[in-house]
Simulated assay, not measured.
Amino acid sequence: MAPSLVIIDASEPLDKINEIIVRDGGVIVSNFFSPELLKETMNGIEPFFVGRKLYDSNATHGELGEEFFPKGSQRVYALLSKMPETLTKVLRLPIWQGINARFLK
């Protein structure tokens, strides 16, 4: 059976989210972004993909594996650095802060 991650809503208590991370090694947090922050983020990244060519290399990328950059994907290096105000909002989210406080001591 393939490994899977629990999906939990961002409205759940932080302690519950952290417990799942401890137990399973990770978790998918749905509704992590508010609709407004999601829209701001998408509006911030979309211009960097317009006109960008699709990746078509056959390289294996060594230890990264053949699927690390799958054919047909697009790459924008340092994308988060291109939108620092939005990134700051994400990093200040209480859930993000709470998870980091627990695991990055």
Rank of each mutant, 00 (worst) to 15 (best):
Y55K: 13
P70T: 12
K71Y: 00
E66P: 01
Y55R: 07
T60E: 08
N58M: 09
N58E: 14
L80N: 04
G65I: 10
E67A: 14
E63K: 01
G72Y: 05
P70Q: 06
A78C: 01
L64K: 02
Q74I: 06
L64V: 00
Y77G: 01
M83R: 12
G72S: 02
N58I: 06
E66G: 02
A59C: 07
S57Q: 05
G65C: 08
P84I: 05
Q74Y: 00
D56Y: 09
P70N: 10
A59K: 11
G62V: 07
P84W: 09
L64T: 01
E67M: 13
A78R: 15
K82D: 04
E63N: 00
E63V: 06
K82Y: 15
F68H: 09
S81R: 10
E66S: 10
A59T: 10
G65D: 08
E66F: 03
G72L: 04
S81M: 13
N58Q: 11
L79A: 12
F68A: 14
L79W: 08
S57A: 13
K82S: 12
V76L: 02
A78F: 06
K82F: 13
S73C: 15
Q74E: 01
Y77E: 08
G72R: 02
H61E: 05
A78Q: 12
G72D: 10
E63S: 01
N58T: 15
D56A: 14
K82Q: 15
L79F: 09
L79V: 11
D56R: 14
E67W: 09
K71G: 08
A78V: 08
S73Y: 10
F69P: 00
R75A: 10
M83N: 14
R75G: 07
P70H: 04
T60S: 12
V76P: 03
L80S: 07
P70V: 01
F69T: 03
V76E: 10
A78H: 06
P84F: 05
K82E: 14
K71L: 08
M83I: 15
S81D: 14
R75T: 12
